Simulated assay, not measured.
Amino acid sequence: MALPIDTAPPTPLAYFASLVRDDDHVPLLEAAVSIAQDEYPDLDVQQVLGDMDQLLERVRRRCAGDAGALQRLRVLNQFFFHDLGFGGNVNNYYDPDNSHLNVVLRTRRGIPITLGVLWLELAEGLGLKARGVNFPGHFMVKINLPDGQVVIDPFTGQSLSREDLSERLEPYKRRQGLVDDYDVPVGLYLQAAPPREILARMLRNLKEIHRSQADWLRLIAVLDRLLILLPDAWDEYRDRGLAWAEMGEARLAVEDLDRYVTHTDNAQDREAMAQRLAELRQALN
C-alpha cells in the first residue's frame, strides 16, 4: 500500500534551513526575505522575489547593451537611490521592520544591511562584480571596476574614499586598542562577506532590538534561525536559554544553558551560567 504523501508546506524555520544548508548555494535574497515570515506568517516570499525581478527589468532597460561597468553602476545608483528613493530610515532606525525586506521594498526605507541586500541583487543582475562588506558598525557594499574598487554606503548611496573609511573606523579601532603598532590597514575591513555572514548580521540586528525590548518570544524565534545558520555559535545557545528562563520555560532553558556551559571557552561566563543552570535545575526538582 502506498504511503500518504505529506503535501503540507514546510514551516518557515524548515524553509529557512533548506535555503542555508549548502554554503556554496545560499540564495541571499530569498533567505533574507524569508526572515520576515516570523513576523508576517502569510508572507509570499516568491512574490517579493518577483517584485525584485520587475525592478531588475526596469533598470536593465536603462542600460545600453554596450554599457561598461562604471556606466551600469551610475545607472543603478540613480535608479535605486534617486528614482526609487531607497534610503535609510533615519527617523525610526530601530524599528524591526527595517530588517524585514518585504516592508523595506514597500516603504523604500531600511537600515544599511537590508538596503544593501536589495542593491546587491540588482547589481548582480546587471552583471556587476558587487559584494557585501561587514564593515564594523555599518554594512557596506563594494564593487570591483576595471579601474579600481568603489565602496558605497547603502544607507545614503554615498561613495566612500579611503579617507572616509579610515575616519569611520577610528572609534572602532580605539575601542579595540588597534592603534599605533597594533593598527591594521583599511583593506582588511573590506573583505567580501559570504551570504551566511550577511544573514547572521541581519538576524543579530533583530536580536538586539528584541532583547532591548524584552520581547522574549520574538527573540527566541530569531535565535532559532541563528542556530540553524550557525550551529556552533555557543553564545546564541546561552542567550536562547536565558530567554527561555525569562519565559518560565525552565526545561528548555536547562537544555540550552547546559550545551553552552559544555562547549564555551569563556571560563568567567561559564561559571556564571553554571550557577544559573544549577538554579534552574533546582526549580525543576
Rank of each mutant, 00 (worst) to 15 (best):
L28N: 03
V75R: 02
I198A: 03
Y189M: 07
L55G: 00
L242G: 12
Q78E: 14
I5P: 00
T11I: 02
D258A: 15
C63E: 08
L43E: 02
F80P: 03
R61P: 00
D265I: 08
Y94H: 13
D153N: 15
V254H: 04
M247S: 14
V150C: 11
G88T: 00
Y172N: 05
N102A: 04
G110A: 05
L128F: 07
A2Y: 09
M140D: 09
T264G: 08
I113W: 00
D53C: 00
E121M: 00
L128C: 10
R106I: 03
L55F: 04
N144P: 05
G68Q: 04
W216M: 04
I113R: 01
H100E: 11
Q191E: 12
H138K: 10
S34V: 02
D66K: 10
P171D: 05
P41W: 01
W234P: 12
N77C: 15
V261Q: 06
L160C: 10
P136V: 00
L49Q: 04
K173P: 00
D232M: 07
Y172H: 15
F81T: 05
G65M: 10
K173E: 09
I35N: 02
R251W: 10
Y189H: 09
I209H: 08
V90H: 11
F81C: 08
D147R: 13
P41R: 01
R108Q: 09
N77A: 10
H210D: 11
Q71Y: 01
D44K: 03
T264L: 06
V90M: 12
Q176F: 05
R270W: 06
T156L: 01
G177P: 06
Y260E: 13
M273F: 05
V26C: 04
D53V: 04
L49K: 03
V59E: 05
A193T: 06
C63I: 01
E246A: 15
E246C: 12
D224G: 10
A278L: 09
H82N: 09
S166K: 14
R58Y: 01
Q149K: 13
E167W: 09
D53F: 02
L76W: 02
S166E: 15
I228H: 06
L101W: 03
Q158P: 05
Q191P: 02
R270S: 14
I209W: 08
K207Q: 14
G85Y: 04
L217K: 15
R240A: 03
L43N: 00
L169A: 05
L223A: 07
E236C: 09
F139M: 08
W244E: 11
Q71A: 13
E197W: 01
Q282V: 12
E30I: 01
T114P: 05
V179M: 14
Q78K: 11
D181R: 11
P10T: 04
D180F: 07
K173R: 15
A283H: 12
L178T: 02
F139V: 07
D258G: 15
M273H: 07
E249D: 14
R196K: 15
R174E: 15
E170R: 12
V26N: 04
L76N: 01
R21H: 13
L203T: 02
R175E: 14
Q213N: 11
L160P: 11
D24G: 08
L115R: 06
G148H: 01
A8V: 09
R168E: 03
L226S: 10
R60K: 15
L242K: 14
F81L: 08
G127K: 08
L126V: 03
